[in-house]
């Protein structure tokens, strides 16, 4: 069923809150991968508040869906999602990056409740998703494995090795998102290492390819519904996103891949996030 406008508005409010959290944590941490955290926020909010079967009360619930943030550098965007869902106290994030904190830039599944898989080295998420999906099938479990990839991350050969395996084993219990913000560290994806025609590549590898505006909950949700109806193999949702989304001065700016924020910039960033609502 399509999302109601009321629900969409609620999700937008939650996402705005998470974006403000990201700004705060980046400032507390002294620096973080803020650009790619802001671009993936809406995907994470849709997963955690709408479509994924998660159980914050019982993070190890054996029947839960598994979520893999393969672009693990967006940990600064994932941690507040988990905190706001109730996996742990948000205040703990004041220690992000600090000595002996459970929260480094890339979240550790042994230290942070709710994190199913430790990531941070790019190109590892989809292979582990294939393993989880095969495991679910073997153990007759109905969980879905959600895997979120960066677009620059798609340069890694291991992603395509895993794509081949996911299609080979007809793993319809995997749904992959590509956070297609078109930027990596050294520049635009198409200048550093061209990915296009990207949809054709995934198709050729045997995926059901869907696309959506990655900041539009109705479109994202519709794509997820379509992925769920596809029962003969894996699906990928190419989500068109904006790196730095929500913070005007960061949007589409490659230099905001990673950065720190002074208190002035924190205020400016938050104003920008709040202003989006007014529009």
């Amino acid at each position: 069923m399509a999302l109601s406008q009321k629900r969409i508005d609620e999700l937008c409010d939650i996402a705005r809150g998470i974006r403000e959290d990201i700004v705060d944590i980046t400032a507390w941490a002294g620096g973080a991968h803020i650009g790619g955290a802001l671009s993936v926020t809406d995907i994470l909010v849709l997963l955690y508040w709408e479509v994924a079967r998660v159980d914050p009360e019982n993070p190890q619930n054996p029947d839960r869906d598994r979520v893999i943030l393969s672009k693990g550098h967006a940990g600064v965007g994932y941690a507040p999602v988990l905190a706001r869902k109730g996996y742990f106290d948000f205040g703990l994030l004041k220690d992000f990056n600090k000595f002996m904190s459970p929260f480094g830039m890339h979240l550790d599944s042994l230290k942070v409740k709710g994190v199913d898989v430790s990531t941070g080295s790019l190109g590892h998420g989809l292979p582990m998703a294939v393993g989880l999906a095969l495991g679910a099938r073997l153990r007759k479990k109905t969980w879905t494995t959600w895997c979120i990839l960066g677009d620059g991350e798609l340069n890694e050969g291991s992603i395509w090795e895993a794509a081949m395996a996911a299609a080979h084993y007809k793993l319809s219990n995997i749904v992959t998102f590509v956070d297609r913000n078109r930027l990596m560290i050294d520049g635009p994806t198409e200048e550093v290492m061209a990915l296009e025609p990207l949809a054709d590549k995934w198709k050729a590898y045997g995926f059901n390819v869907l696309s959506a505006n990655g900041h539009d909950f109705a479109e994202l949700h519709a794509a997820v519904e379509a992925a769920r109806k596809h029962t003969t193999g894996p699906s990928v949702i190419l989500a068109d996103t904006v790196k730095g989304k929500g913070v005007g001065f960061m949007e589409n700016e490659v230099k905001w891949h990673y950065g720190g924020l002074s208190s002035d910039l924190v205020e400016k960033a938050k104003e920008s996030i709040r202003a989006e609502k007014a529009n």
Binding site: G31, N97, M105, H106, G120
Partner: peptide, 10 residues
């Protein structure tokens, strides 16, 4: 550990 904040992956 020169990128200590990043954690073990880095």
């Amino acid at each position: 550990a020169s990128f200590g904040q990043a954690g073990s992956t880095h």
